[in-house]
């Protein structure tokens, strides 16, 4: 799902990338620090930023994309207002972490690593949050939710202001 970018954001991306490139003397071998700098300031790596980096460094666009998708550190979608991190560590995996991930993905109608078009929610997987006794664990913003069941998913989202069910009722009318 493509997230729309405002003209203002476009401008911010442009200047941020230009500064990051300048800081690293437009060196190809500094691609990784450039990407880190851009993500550090924008919170993610927009497509426009990658295109600009590629053309400035005179390398194929796909090479920038290749590096950005290789490292888990980089995200391609803007962080949502509420960040939902589903743990996929060993314990959570065994306790059905992927089922919880699927439940969120279905409710928010986005895939893992994506952000809702209204930028309210972003969904991502994390390796381990260190409280395996509570598996499966979900970290919502900075709060840890333990022993999450698929039935808990709606409750978590409603607490964050997502309107669930209402849309369907409107459609029925």
């Amino acid at each position: 799902m493509e997230i729309e970018i405002t003209a203002e954001e476009r401008e911010a991306i442009k200047t941020t990338v230009a500064e990051a490139l300048e800081k690293n003397s437009y060196r190809r071998d500094r691609l990784l620090p450039i990407l880190q700098e851009v993500q550090g300031r924008l919170g993610y790596l927009p497509r426009e930023a990658m295109e600009q980096i590629a053309s400035s460094l005179k390398i194929p666009e796909v090479d920038v994309y290749s590096v950005a998708t290789f490292y888990n550190q980089f995200r391609l979608n803007p962080p949502g207002e509420h960040q939902i991190k589903v743990c996929m560590g060993t314990a959570c995996h065994m306790a059905g972490g992927h089922i919880i991930m699927d439940s969120f993905a279905r409710r928010l109608n986005i895939k893992e690593g994506e952000t809702t078009p209204d930028r309210k929610f972003s969904l991502e997987r994390v390796a381990c949050v260190g409280c395996c006794a509570l598996a499966p664990v979900v970290v919502v913003n900075e709060n840890v939710e333990g022993k999450v069941r698929p039935t808990r998913v709606d409750g978590i989202l409603m607490a964050l202001g997502k309107e669930i069910g209402k849309k369907n009722e409107e459609e029925k009318r």
């Binding site: 590629a54 194929p60 666009e61 796909v62 920038v64 994309y65 290749s66 998708t69 290789f70």
Partner: peptide, 16 residues
């Protein structure tokens, strides 16, 4: 074209 993603998701693809 180039390699994108990694592990089981690794594939040959174009930009984005």
């Amino acid at each position: 074209i180039g390699f994108v993603r990694r592990g089981m998701d690794r594939r040959v693809a174009a930009f984005w």
